[in-house]
Nucleic acid binder design. Structure first.
Length: 820
RNA sequence: GGGGAUGUGGUGGAAUUGGUAGACACGCUAGCCUUAGGAGCUAGUGCCCUUGCGGCGUGAAGGUUCAAGUCCUUUCAUCCCCACCA
């Protein structure tokens, strides 16, 4: 008998499926469509490990299950291939990033192929292909035309050695994370997308999405809408007015100071001559601190200096000191706050340190005075009001008096998308001395990345493209005069903000996608990926989708109807898998060891609930392989017996004793697996398949392969239920059983109720809520019959011991509880 | 500090509306068998006193109920994300 050797069957079927194109999707309206998508990967130098594989396995099971259940499934794959790692590789090795990416892509694709995922490879896309980024550029111009892309000069961290800007996160202790040299601030003109204009819609539309609450909450917090008031504090004996933002104007009478951010424009004018030197020193120190350092200080300490000036609280006309402190952020609200030390913990710490008056104005509901509601005290005419009511009242009064207005603030900032990097999609803008920033005409797209000598940054805050004269020098599309091309490239997240639409029509060279194809496939029904995209990609893609909707390009406003976040696979020791820790487990090596893709796929899902993290287990792998091996062996034995003519005595299968138990087991599993896979209970679905195999082994031990028709049915059904999880072995055995067409285009089995009913049922009997026995009764027996049977059971009778039964609880067909 | 998630045997994990806790698998134990393989098959395996038709058991403590892993209150631990957002 042939043994189960995955290496002999897996590559064979992968080639066959590809040749027969069984996973190719077409716009066939006779079946309901289903768009199943996993985030398209960045083909990094490090190969995929079993953690990545889990993501694709979940998607593949969903795709295959729906395909077999009569859906027209789109399940595509592509490459998100622009980005810094490839560029660094290029700088180091003096080769084009193209070379590295092509190698990595090849490796990744081979890794995906060997897992037997059912992708429609005819729709493969690559974000670094000019045919693709032509349309990324086209979308940039769409945003530009709609006033949603703009340039603005702002202060950025700059490393004079690496000659590049750095993100805030890349500055550690005032030094560059790569070379360790001190960084400077440099004013640089950058491109932004006006995502803030969509903040309200991005927030409100979360409501109807079938996403996990945690991701929705993360987006809500990231957008950070807060409704409050801007209140004007007149400076005493000076012209200036300081506008502050607050959400707690019910504590207006508790204000005992005002704080400006060190970057606040009024700092210079408001500071008195006596305080000038100390304020300037403080501002200078604050400027040299990175945001990281500022945050680190948050827990420990608050620092600040007095400006020497006073402001007038519009509520009670008191003069209160104006301070400068770096715990106030210039980037949020107005860059100035009112200090209420009695009811804000930060203000409290500050006031304590600098001996500023603390004035309680609320009797709070909670134990803590900070950030809670209550009844207003020490607040003039507002005394006795609820804090919630006072907020409204005082704001109305202030607005009437012309000292305040209601405002909404957001934490979300506009999306800085320009990068001074080579390996990205060039921003399709031409700068003309006369006409300013001008869009490249559509018929000149794509603006292709030119070949360059060196991938190093140029040193003047521009990308390496700035050194390519033939690229930079051009003519203005509007006036025809000499002009220069924009040399910055786009953030990689621009490419991934629309790729899901390109899959609907990947080879279109007239437009990013045809309207009818987008209408047919989109939105994505199942989007499967890690939670790491929670606030970046998932927010950006929603933003672009809404812009496209507003432009009339599509008919939906949300790209991903359902979002599913898989749990992470950790190394056996519970640590994150990473190349640097040298603890990654790659599917390639497992396949080499002889486990096969099918065992790995089973393991990825059987290890635990798909949306919870789990530690990879080497031993567990063996169990999954054993399960498939048992399946293999059972089918081989069945085929052997069929060939030898065993169990052919002329009688029909139905008349044989083993027929019914075989069918019962099979139908029970069909029902359970179907329900489980539908509800994404992959681990329990696999457990039921294991149970079925165990059942069949027991029946075989008792009856051999009598009832061959029942066996044929049970084994065929088992394989179909197994097909989404283990596509290779199920296909191989399916064909061995004599089926002509691929199991993956077969119709999912359905259970028959008549095989699920039992003649007798076991009813559990409790006395006073404790399990004391069980009785077997005919199914459908009356309550009276069952209760009587339970009461007269010898064991139960002993427990009741003549005591009167006060109450009898009966759960139909399940349980009797005597309360004595 | 805010938000989210998770706590069940030696291990990973199962348990519709509250209704037999521990499915399935790993590990372990015993037996069988052999084409000696990464074997395979069969049985057993929550804990305790192996006295029973016994007692205890779902992070901890209370509560509701005939009945709680599941519902309510309090609390502890671990993980993840955001974090001076006024």
């Amino acid at each position: 008998m042939q043994r189960y050797k995955p290496k002999d069957i897996e590559p064979k079927w992968q080639a066959k499926w590809e040749a027969d194109r069984i996973y190719q999707a077409s716009e066939n309206p006779s079946k309901p469509k289903r768009y199943v998508l996993e985030y398209f990967p960045y083909p990094s130098g490090a190969a995929m490990h079993v953690g990545h594989v889990r993501n694709y396995t979940i998607g593949d099971v969903v795709a295959r299950f729906n395909r077999m259940n009569g859906h027209n499934v789109l399940h595509p794959m592509g490459w998100d291939a622009f980005g810094l790692p490839a560029e660094n590789y290029a700088i180091k090795n003096k080769v084009s990033p193209r070379v590295a990416i092509d190698e990595n892509t090849k490796r990744f694709k081979q890794q995906l192929m060997q897992m037997g995922f059912s992708y429609d490879w005819s729709r493969e896309i690559d974000s670094t292909d000019p045919k693709y980024y032509k349309w990324t550029q086209w979308f940039f111009l769409l945003l530009f035309r709609r006033g949603l892309a703009y340039q603005q000069e702002s202060l950025q961290w700059w490393c004079p050695v690496d000659k590049t800007v750095l993100a805030n996160e890349q500055v550690e202790d005032g030094k560059c994370w790569r070379c360790g040299n001190p960084v400077e601030k440099k004013a640089l003109k950058q491109w932004f997308f006006k995502i803030t204009e969509y903040a309200d819609r991005l927030l409100d539309d979360l409501e109807d999405l079938n996403w996990s609450e945690s991701i929705k909450t993360m987006q809500r917090n990231w957008i950070g809408r807060s409704i409050g008031a801007e209140i004007a504090f007149r400076a005493k004996d000076q012209e200036e007015t300081i506008s502050i933002f607050t959400t707690r104007h019910d504590t207006q009478y508790g204000v005992t100071f005002v704080v400006l951010s060190p970057e606040h424009p009024l700092v210079k004018t408001i500071t008195t001559p006596e305080q000038k030197s100390v304020v300037e020193a403080y501002v200078k120190e604050a400027q040299s601190k990175s945001d990281i350092e500022r945050q680190a200080n948050a827990d420990k300490d608050k620092t600040g200096v007095f400006t020497g000036s006073y402001a007038i609280n519009p509520a009670n006309n008191e003069a209160i000191p104006i301070w400068i402190a770096d715990y106030v952020l210039m980037g949020y609200g107005t860059g100035a706050v009112m200090g209420v030390p009695a009811h804000d913990d930060r203000d409290h710490v500050f006031a304590k340190k600098y001996d500023i008056e603390i004035r309680q104005v609320l009797e709070t509901d909670e134990d803590s005075n900070f950030h809670s509601e209550g009844v207003v005290i020490n607040s003039g005419k507002y005394n006795g009001m609820r804090s919630e009511a006072m907020r409204e009242k005082i704001l109305t009064d202030f607005v009437k008096a012309g000292v305040a207005k209601e405002v909404v603030n957001y934490k979300i900032r506009d999306w800085l998308i320009s990068r001074q990097r080579y390996w990205g999609a060039p921003i399709p803008i031409i700068h003309c001395p006369k006409d300013g920033a001008v869009a490249v005409p559509d018929d000149q797209l794509p603006i292709e990345l030119p070949e360059v000598e060196s991938y190093e940054p140029s040193g003047d805050g521009r990308s390496p493209l700035a050194k390519v004269k033939e690229f930079v020098n051009t003519t203005c599309p509007r006036c025809g005069g000499p002009a220069e091309r924009e040399t910055d490239t786009m953030d990689g997240f621009a490419c991934s903000s629309w790729y899901f639409l390109r899959f609907a029509d990947p080879h279109n060279d007239k437009e990013p996608f045809a309207r009818d194809k987008a209408d047919f496939w989109l939105p994505v029904d199942d989007y499967i990926g890690g939670a790491e995209h929670a606030v970046m990609h998932l927010l950006y893609a929603r933003f672009w989708t809404k812009v496209m909707y507003d432009e009339g390009l599509i008919e939906f406003e949300e790209p991903f109807t359902t979002l599913r976040n898989q749990g992470m696979i950790l190394a056996p020791d519970g640590q994150k898998m990473s190349k640097s820790k040298n603890n990654t487990i790659e599917p390639d090596s497992l396949i080499d060891q002889g486990y096969g893709a099918d065992s790995i796929r089973i393991m990825e899902l059987f290890i635990g609930p798909w949306n919870q993290s789990a530690n990879w287990s080497v031993e567990g792998m063996g169990g999954c392989f054993r399960f498939l091996q048992r399946t293999w062996t059972l089918v081989q034995e069945y085929l052997g017996s069929r060939q030898s003519g065993h169990a052919k005595d002329g009688s029909t299968s139905e008349s044989l004793e083993s027929d019914l138990p075989i069918r019962k087991s099979a139908h029970r599993s069909i029902k359970k697996v179907t329900e489980d896979v539908h509800d994404l209970g992959f681990n329990t679905a696999i457990a039921s398949l294991m149970e079925l195999i165990n059942d069949l082994y027991k029946i075989k031990a008792d009856y051999e392969f009598a009832a061959p028709e029942a066996w044929q049915f049970a084994l065929s059904s088992l394989l179909q239920l197994l097909a989404p999880f283990a596509p290779h072995i199920s296909e191989e055995l399916w064909r061995q059983l004599g089926h002509e067409d691929s199991i993956h285009v077969s119709t999912w089995p359905t259970h028959e109720e008549k095989y699920l009913s039992e003649d007798t049922v076991i009813v559990v009997v409790q006395v006073n809520g404790k399990l004391r026995g069980q009785v077997r009764v005919a199914s459908g027996a009356s309550k009276e019959t069952i209760v009587e049977a339970a009461r007269s059971d010898s064991k139960i009778a002993r427990y009741l011991d003549g005591k009167p039964v006060r109450k009898t609880i009966y759960v139909a067909g399940k349980l009797v509880n005597f309360v004595a």
